[in-house]
Design a protein around this nucleic acid. Sequence first.
DNA 1: TCCAGTAAGTTCCTTTTTGAGACTTACCGT
DNA 2: ACGGTAAGTCTCAAAAAGGAACTTACTGGA
Lengths: 152, 152
Amino acid sequence: MKWDALEEEPCSLARTIAVIGDRWTLLILRECFLRVRRFEAFQASLQITRHLLSERLKKLVRFGILRRVPYQEAPKRYEYILTQKGLDLYPVIMAMVHWGDSHMADERGRPLLHEHRNCGKLFDPVMVCSECGEVLRAKEVHVHPGPGRRAA
Amino acid sequence: MKWDALEEEPCSLARTIAVIGDRWTLLILRECFLRVRRFEAFQASLQITRHLLSERLKKLVRFGILRRVPYQEAPKRYEYILTQKGLDLYPVIMAMVHWGDSHMADERGRPLLHEHRNCGKLFDPVMVCSECGEVLRAKEVHVHPGPGRRAA
DNA sequence: TCCAGTAAGTTCCTTTTTGAGACTTACCGT
DNA sequence: ACGGTAAGTCTCAAAAAGGAACTTACTGGA
């Protein structure tokens, strides 16, 4: 299966994977959420090869997750800013960070702590039902075919 | 950067990516959450090569996300079951599905709908703060170094 | 004017990872 | 003994990633 084929699958997970389902893309997005914007800065903090970084940034721009915005003329230079579509990936990143915190931390504890400005407390992200607000568990969710399901 | 190096990074996102940060692993997990358990069944529904499927299943077992459980003797056959560590990836998968539903759906709408058994309604997953219950937004979260941060 | 420096890429070549598909092992039922 | 099934393994070609030097377009200083 090729990457483009994934995008066409009648499955929202597959389509998301087609966009962010590789190692470097996810790490680049981490940097974006930490306010990194420029090519050299991404390269320095990630140790990614310039070649791949260039490719991945183009892909993220193509999918509308980053916007390439000039920050100086002569010589023309651009920086990469998260769009709303990109900002909407925050729950994905946070869910992954939280799983890593819970299951992959070493004896010293978490690398980063998160503070919610609105309440001022250190928190964990929790996924709840939009309708009743209860914490979601896999066993309590039932899946139905939706309108966009292609016939098998 | 190699995969093993990622695992050692002082970053929970990097550590999570080291485990589930590739295309096939995420798709295999989708099948697991849809109650697929056996080699042939994974292979048939994903069109993954047997070679890679075998490798990825081993990796997931090695990381404690799946358990390899015999379901028949003579000839000995095994199936793959999500552990609690694996079940805890549910928010990650749901966050990705929801992003795909929001940003990658075609005109026909969502491929799948989710029903929350506890309240009986079709829902979207929402990520909230564990302390105050408010919806989380990237701009309202402040990051602090934690005890596990390695000195740069 | 010439040189060093900076930022953002691009190019070339090697190594690693995937992909496609046949082959293997261990059994069953007929 | 033969065909079928389930879970892998093996081989080889194709695609992707890694490493490092090169390019372009400027600035500021000697």
